Simulated scan of single mutants.
Amino acid sequence: MKRASALVVALAAVSCTAQGPTASSATQEPSAGPSAPPEPTVSQTPGPPDFAAKVTPVTRAQLPYSWRPGCPVPVGDLRLIRMSYWGFDDKPHVGELVVRKTVTDDIVTVFRKLYDWRWPIYKMELVDAYKGDDFDSIDANNTSAFNCRAATGSSNWSRHAYGQAIDINPRENPYVTASGSTAHQNAKKYTKRPLDAKGVINPGDKVVKAFQSVGWEWGGYWSGTKDYQHFSKGGG
């Protein structure tokens, strides 16, 4: 990022006096006038860095728990995105997500908007940091994407197993059953919507609209069970 550098410009007027044989007969050069005052120092406090994202192939070694033989998407179809996000501490951070290569542009587009809005994300690291355990990742309030697992309460593959789903701030945006309960104790105060709190996603808000603009659906619009953390491409 280009940063403004301090600039100090000092101007001095120089006047010359001709020397003559005597003070009374000396010819004086015209005065150049008063010196211009020095310009003030220009100083700007550097702002946070611009959003940045880097998409690279992912290796099997980077997914020791979240991928296994028999998953519906081969490792070669997945990509690692290292990108900026705005933290709950009101500071910029760099996090990681793994998604299918066909949706990398969607994710970068949305997360650029979230960063520019200073919309906060608690943390963002691969679910492998939790040995692929979705419950532990959610309990840690971790935003994550790819995980080769079945959908909650189903034997079918989750959209996470295809690399086409993401869970954002799962503590503030819990999975809530039709009866209004959640499995995570630290999320119980976040089960109602609308709710005005840091990192919360509400119906019709700009986060939902940002994902909708790239063709992703929100689990908060499901009937019965609500999955407020969940966005996916292709539903489910």
Rank of each mutant, 00 (worst) to 15 (best):
S137G: 13
M124A: 04
R100K: 15
V108P: 00
T109P: 03
V98M: 09
W117A: 03
T102R: 12
D136W: 11
R112A: 00
D134L: 13
L126Y: 05
D106L: 05
I121H: 00
Y130K: 11
F135V: 15
L126K: 08
L126H: 08
I107Y: 07
V99R: 13
Y130R: 09
D139K: 15
V98S: 09
Y115S: 01
F135E: 14
I121R: 01
D105A: 10
L114R: 03
Y115Q: 01
W119Y: 13
M124S: 04
M124Y: 05
V108W: 00
Y115L: 03
I121N: 00
V127D: 05
K123I: 01
V110G: 05
L114A: 01
D136I: 07
Y122E: 09
V103G: 02
Y130M: 09
I138Q: 12
Y115M: 05
L97V: 14
F111C: 02
W117S: 02
V98E: 07
L97D: 11
Y122R: 06
D139W: 12
L114H: 01
W117N: 05
V127L: 09
S137W: 04
F111H: 09
T109K: 08
F135T: 15
V98Q: 05
V99K: 14
L97P: 14
K101R: 15
R100D: 14
I138F: 06
A129T: 10
D133P: 09
Y115C: 00
G132T: 10
L126R: 09
L114C: 04
I107C: 06
R100T: 09
V98H: 07
V110D: 03
K123A: 07
I107P: 06
D133W: 13
R100L: 11
Y122A: 04
N141F: 02
E96D: 15
L126P: 01
G132P: 14
A129M: 10
I138R: 10
K123P: 02
D136E: 13
K113P: 00
F135P: 04
D133T: 11
R112I: 01
R118K: 15
D105Y: 03
D106G: 07
Y122S: 08
W119D: 02
D116K: 06
D136N: 14
M124N: 04
G132Y: 12
L114F: 11
P120K: 09
D136S: 12
F135G: 12
V98Y: 07
W119C: 08
D106Y: 04
A140F: 06
T109Y: 08
D136F: 13
D105S: 11
L97G: 09
F111W: 03
I138G: 06
V98C: 08
D136R: 14
N141E: 09
D134I: 15
D139F: 08
K123L: 01
I138E: 13
W119L: 03
V99S: 12
V98D: 03
V103Q: 05
V98I: 12
K101A: 13
